[in-house]
Design a protein around this nucleic acid. Structure first.
Lengths: 211, 211
DNA sequence: ACCCAAACGGACGGTGGCGTCCGTTAGCGT
DNA sequence: ACGCTAACGGACGCCACCGTCCGTTTGGGT
């Protein structure tokens, strides 16, 4: 029995390739502004493509989402890497928060994709893991400088990300502005303070981040 | 022409009244655990009632939601009143935040109903207004004590509420725990601090709180 | 220039939620 | 005990979205 991949050509015809790009563009635009719940057909329409073509290129919405957001995943990657590279860990930490919040505020759909394990078994799991590990390391260093409160845990960051996605607004600009202020407040909360009363116990969200 | 209300009997038959209660119970339970997006028929099924009966009592989902959440609205009311009554405004303010977060964490649907103007023209608008005004007054007093940061604005509280609703979790207990910790962090952020860097400009969310 | 497989998209059947109609049941006043 | 009518709920038609089939078009190799 021949395997399926044997039957599929490894190079797309020019028109097919063109359509693929248009589909991805449409998907990115719609995911960003409307979230992941846009109907597949809506994406197809925006891409000036029939439904069948869309399904031919991306058999499942998963596949489309994954492909559409690789760029943003890379951006996430870059953000934490740069934060990690900063000689001042506390400043790096703050910037990671600020830039991550902004990234998510710009992209409604990306947040959904990143936060939830999605339907299930999102392909971002590995990336997500890498990112969180990097942040954990950064947080450790930031604690050593005495700027990050000692009782901070990684789940607090997830908590913050979940909270950030709760910020809806009609226009992107408003949402981004709100997100920026939110990030500033969060940083304030994470900062070591002479008056920090003990925090309530952590809730283990790391794996329970369902949508 | 006789008005509709003339034709409707002002007293329900006993079985009708019974069904009405069962519908409300089912609605409250489902709204709390699943959010407002539960299908009407699902509510009907849980109430052991035909769809027609549900629609007869509550012609629109709006009506059902409004009726189902009057209790919680009263709770909200009580929370801010008690906060306002506290001789220590800052403690009152903190408790309003804590208790509000907890209330919302317990009730997925209530948050949606309260935050968004919903489809449009939710009947809670008036209550919402009252609540926000009360909190504004409380915040003013808390600032006077020097505990609440001077650059706090009411939109920050809305921001916090929106953020709180972003906290999803499979189980209620986890969500409540997370929400509690979140509230504590938020209070930390709102507290006057020797190190408070100026916050980014506010985003006017008050009216743009769409779902 | 020709051909054929890759690629296309309109059209189809299936599912699930919606709101309403109407024939049947049963509360309650006499 | 009876009858009238409020109240019931199964069943209907509607619409949106889903994923696939299949007859037609077209890129690109010979």
């Amino acid at each position: 029995m021949r395997v399926v991949t044997d039957l599929l050509p490894h190079t797309l015809r020019s028109d097919a390739l063109d359509n693929r790009e248009r589909i991805l563009d449409a998907a990115r635009a719609l995911f960003a502004s409307e979230g992941l719940n846009v109907p597949m057909r809506e994406i197809a329409r925006h891409a000036r493509v029939g439904p069948a073509t869309l399904y031919r290129r991306f058999p499942t919405k998963q596949a489309l989402v994954t492909e559409a957001f690789t760029e943003q995943m890379r951006a996430c990657h870059t953000i934490v890497d740069e934060g990690l590279a900063d000689p001042d860990p506390w400043r790096g930490f703050r910037q990671v928060i600020e830039r991550t919040c902004e990234l998510h505020a710009h992209n409604r759909g990306f947040t959904e994709a990143f936060m939830s394990t999605f339907p299930d078994a999102m392909d971002f799991a590995a990336e997500r893991e890498y990112t969180l590990n990097a942040i954990a390391k950064l947080a450790h260093r930031a604690k050593d400088t005495g700027h990050l409160r000692p009782d901070f845990v990684l789940d607090d960051l997830i908590l913050m990300l979940m909270a950030n996605r709760g910020i809806h607004a009609t226009s992107t600009t408003v949402r981004v502005a709100a997100s920026r202020r939110f990030a500033a407040l969060v940083i304030q909360a994470f900062q070591t303070s002479p008056t920090h009363a003990p925090l309530p116990p952590v809730a283990r969200l790391a794996t329970a981040a369902h949508a």
